[in-house]
Design a protein around this nucleic acid. Structure first.
Ligand SMILES: [Zn+2]
Ligand SMILES: [Zn+2]
Ligand SMILES: [Zn+2]
Ligand SMILES: [Zn+2]
Lengths: 137, 137
DNA sequence: ACTGATATGTTATTAAGTTACATCAGTTGC
DNA sequence: GCAACTGATGTAACTTAATAACATATCAGT
């Protein structure tokens, strides 16, 4: 039970469900500690409860970690099966995150890796800036 | 004094010089706290001394922050002037980091941004995996 | 019921980064 | 010289992020 193919929403444990729902209904990314606070009423007491659930959810592909924020978002395409390379555009004013994939970038990464004998396991692409909405206000 | 054009190595302060030298002579990326430990003998006592120097060095383009590691590396091309988009390949076994730039990726990012009214300020590209050396050993 | 594997609860600790405030050194204007 | 300003530094306390260690609980398969 370690990948999205064999694990669906139905098989999530109680804690995983609580954490995923918190992320899914949030407007933007949440830090692990923010999630913890939101789940105090559901019995959460310690960071590890959140981190353990997040680890699995990331593993399942249902949640992504934003490295430049130390925060987590629910996947915007939870039913698309296995993603290729995913990029995130993060608005520094309103916190909104857009998730998209880009085959050209993926090819470039693969190309550099092949040329340099590097074997990639995970690629992070995060664009920080301001979203259209914030620029027009 | 906020960009690489008007600031050279000569104008670094004592603390900035110490931090930069620590990074420059390191084999791989260092966390702020690791740098602090290395500089205890030079009088460093508090994290802020390191973070302040790092902020400036990053500003000058002489040091890069690796978001997925919460760590810092000296720029591999410190004399190339202003960089465009930079990508990092990070070996998870030996810690070695390769820095390279890629115009195609930069174009793709610009393209997505233009199409979505997003104004990018900084783009992070970090490839985690294993380097050639580690794969052949 | 026994066993192994996974999930959970709890406490304490380490690592990363910031706030607030005091001091010091150089520079500009008088 | 001296006030006033600016940027750099020192220090303590604190918040936030993540992990280690250990105890329990749940459940499937036999
Ligand atoms: Zn996704
Ligand atoms: Zn915005
Ligand atoms: Zn560089
Ligand atoms: Zn390596």
């Amino acid at each position: 039970m370690t990948n999205r193919e064999t694990t669906t929403r139905e098989t999530l444990t109680r804690n995983q469900t609580l954490v995923f729902d918190a992320l899914a209904k949030a407007a933007g990314p949440l830090s692990a500690y923010t999630i913890l606070d939101k789940l105090r009423d559901d019995g959460f007491r310690a960071p590890l409860q959140v981190y353990r659930a997040l680890d699995k959810l990331v593993d399942f592909g249902m949640v992504h970690r934003l490295e430049s924020l130390n925060a987590f978002v629910a996947c915007a395409h939870p039913h698309c099966g296995q993603h290729g390379l995913i990029a995130f555009a993060i608005c520094e004013k309103c916190g909104h995150v857009s998730e998209f994939s880009n085959d050209v970038i993926e090819d470039q990464v693969r190309g550099w890796a092949a040329a340099n004998g590097f074997k990639p396991s995970k690629t992070t692409v995060e664009i920080r800036g301001n979203c259209a909405k914030c620029l027009n206000s």
